[in-house]
Simulated assay, not measured.
Amino acid sequence: MDSPGQVPLIERFKSVIPFWAHPFVSDIKDVSPYGNCGFRAVAVGLGLTQKHWPDVRQALINEMDTHETFWRLHFDREIDGRYDLWRSELDWFNTVKPAPNTHWFHVPPHGHLVAQTYGCVLINLHGTDNQSYFPTRDGPNQLPDIPVIAIGNVGGNHWIYVKLEGDFPMPWPVSNWARYAQLDALEWQKMEDEVEMEIEHEQAQEQGQVPGPVEGDDILAGYQYL
């Protein structure tokens, strides 16, 4: 809660938090900076304290090492050598010195890793450029009660945790997610598509209209995101 006379956090970070999200924001945690803020924000979203940022870094490293073939295939397919680069960025555990920008939390790569490592949906809020990261190997059958974590990027060099509650809209999946996702994981899109189509149908009925079928074979066809 903001103290009397303090600028409300949602007003302070209005350039980060899109207008549609305002009614669903129940809390904002402006974590400590010093190069580990992205990992701190994720830790808070997981129900830990921000001091657990080293645990988040280690968990993402473990995911990359355990499933190296999977991640190397996808990261290096975009640009050769990216797997080693993203892996090295995670390797910083100095609790005294600030992490240099070569060890900061970066999306999309670390966003994909968080979603798969923790079996969650990670939402990146950044003004008008908002993205969702779904797990890349596990689908709804493996993760029936998937949590949602939202973090916001402030000025390109700081991250905050944004707690969203209620039936908030889901931003469009990050563009390269479908290229990474395995068959089970692609069910996330189908499930979300069904939900959005149901909402569209209910809204049309309220207006005395009945929407037609979604056309096209593309899995993204008719996918109603923000």
Rank of each mutant, 00 (worst) to 15 (best):
P4F: 11
I10G: 06
R12A: 09
F13D: 08
I17E: 00
F19I: 14
W20L: 04
A21K: 02
H22K: 14
P23V: 05
F24S: 04
I28H: 11
I28S: 07
V31C: 08
S32L: 14
G35P: 12
F39Y: 04
R40Y: 03
A41W: 03
A41I: 02
A43L: 03
V44I: 05
G47I: 04
L48T: 03
T49F: 10
Q50N: 02
K51W: 00
P54L: 03
P54D: 00
R57M: 08
A59N: 03
A59Q: 08
L60V: 06
T66G: 01
T66F: 10
H67S: 06
W71S: 01
L73V: 04
H74E: 00
E78K: 05
I79N: 05
D80R: 11
G81Y: 02
R82F: 09
R82N: 13
L85D: 04
D91N: 15
T102A: 01
T102P: 07
V107Y: 03
L113F: 01
V114Y: 01
Q116S: 09
Y118G: 07
L125I: 08
G127K: 01
D129K: 08
F134Y: 12
F134L: 02
T136K: 05
D138M: 13
G139H: 08
P140E: 09
Q142S: 15
A150Q: 05
A150K: 07
I151K: 05
G152N: 05
V154I: 06
N157D: 12
Y161K: 00
V162K: 01
G166F: 03
M170D: 03
W172A: 14
P173M: 03
W177Q: 06
W177D: 07
A185Q: 12
L186T: 11
E187T: 13
E187W: 14
W188T: 03
M191V: 15
D193E: 15
E194P: 00
E196I: 13
M197W: 10
Q209I: 07
G212K: 10
P213L: 14
G216V: 10
D218Y: 12
I219L: 14
A221H: 13
L226W: 04
